[in-house]
Design a binder for these strands. Structure first.
Lengths: 232, 232
DNA sequence: CAAGATTATTTGGTATACCAAATTATGAAT
DNA sequence: ATTCATAATTTGGTATACCAAATAATCTTG
């Protein structure tokens, strides 16, 4: 007796979402954190049964995830979790870098004082957790920091595209983050630089700081991906 | 007796694509050129019947188009062709601008001499058609010019994301292009500048030229969208 | 015993059936 | 005639059924 996906104790009339979207959310989360490993199969019948739904909405979810680049659907094979090549990861990072530089530029015009405050708070959390052994916490706040900057642009397409690139890069960046526990001070310094640019609403400084920050990430991840692949 | 979508006289064994993808291609083309007007309904039964397929693959196509931002699917209403607000169009253009600037930068490293030749040829076509009354031809070559630059980066995610933004912007840019027949010389001058940057593999010049070119487009489209909406 | 052919089974792709919500049409009451 | 309530119908969401291709298993044959 598989449990249904969500407790439907929400507002019964409003905000009903398609099942496919909900399933996509569930699977996306599992893929992003590596619970569903890259390359692993997602058989339609088995998975839909496990989720307590039929194949139809599961299929919709898989199509959504395919369009996001998280799932690969070959003609007559089981859908598999995307397993991006090193080159593809770098390509994704290059675009992500440009998106965040743009976001920094735009955010200087659109960000509110409250939003700056929120980002400062995130930065504070990262400083506080800099010595934490739980690398996952530090990493998640790091991601939230970047997301918050993009959100401050109020540019919906930019926010969505950035989120999608983030999903595809999450795993690679997490693995990179785990090996750089010793170098968190550099991350924090770069974040501080970005934050300073935002505070002064200095478009060039902010976008350049973000660009430089991402370039660092590209360099780090490139070296990791060059190694023979030892996974989590 | 509705005709089937495609003649299956292709290689029978290889490259078989899902019906949903093919339908998405058909509908995307119709949406992009305005054959399916913004805001118009796409009833599932009626449309699937007209295309000679069942609702299932049509629905897959609609989901793909929704994820591309070309179709809006509300909870219990017929899917409708997206009708982006002026603010959204500008937001899209801002991102597209950053994507093309990035492409120009990257392409300077990756573009081949053949590809430069191809782009020069496109430029030559535009020069030749500068006085053509068929604004559609000039416009399409214009789009191809930009696509070719992005393609030269060999960055698959960038190419795909750019293509999606292009789809969503196609109509707005076409309408803008039609009102600027008199100012094609400016477009050509800016393209020449971009091309020169590519020839010299000058990353800064190329990306700046593309950025400036897109900024011009944003300005033009903004003024058009500010007017009361008279359509095609 | 090994290798190839053939059958059985699994799996994705598509079509159809069913349901619930929403819209439209219809009719009664003021 | 207008307005509100109610019934009929349309429409999207989900489940199920069916088919063809691909894979796995089995059997036959050299």
């Amino acid at each position: 007796m598989p449990a249904s996906l969500i407790d439907v104790s929400e507002i019964p009339s409003l905000s009903r979402q398609r099942l496919g979207d909900q399933i996509a959310d569930v699977l996306r989360k599992q893929i992003v954190v590596g619970e569903l490993a890259p390359g692993s199969r997602i058989p339609e019948r088995e998975t839909s049964l496990a989720l307590g739904v039929s194949r139809t909405p599961l299929r919709e979810a898989l199509l959504i995830l395919e369009s996001e680049g998280l799932v690969t659907m070959a003609p007559a094979r089981s859908p598999i979790v995307a397993n991006p090549s090193p080159k593809e990861v770098v390509d994704l990072l290059i675009v992500q870098s440009a998106l965040e530089a743009l976001a920094g530029d735009c955010a200087c015009d659109t960000i509110t004082e409250e939003e700056i405050g929120h980002i400062e708070e995130l930065h504070g959390q990262m400083v506080a957790q800099a010595d934490s052994t739980e690398s996952i916490d530090f990493f998640q706040v790091d991601m939230a920091f970047h997301q918050a900057i993009v959100a401050a642009t109020k540019n919906a397409p930019l926010i969505k595209t950035h989120a999608q690139y983030n999903s595809r890069l999450w795993r690679a960046r997490y693995l990179s983050s785990r090996r750089r526990v010793k170098k968190r001070s550099l991350t924090l310094a770069e974040h501080g630089n970005i934050l300073e640019g935002l505070r002064n609403r200095d478009r060039k400084r902010t976008s350049r700081a973000l660009e430089k920050h991402l370039k660092t990430a590209i360099r780090n991840i490139s070296t990791i991906l060059a190694e023979p692949g030892t996974d989590a």
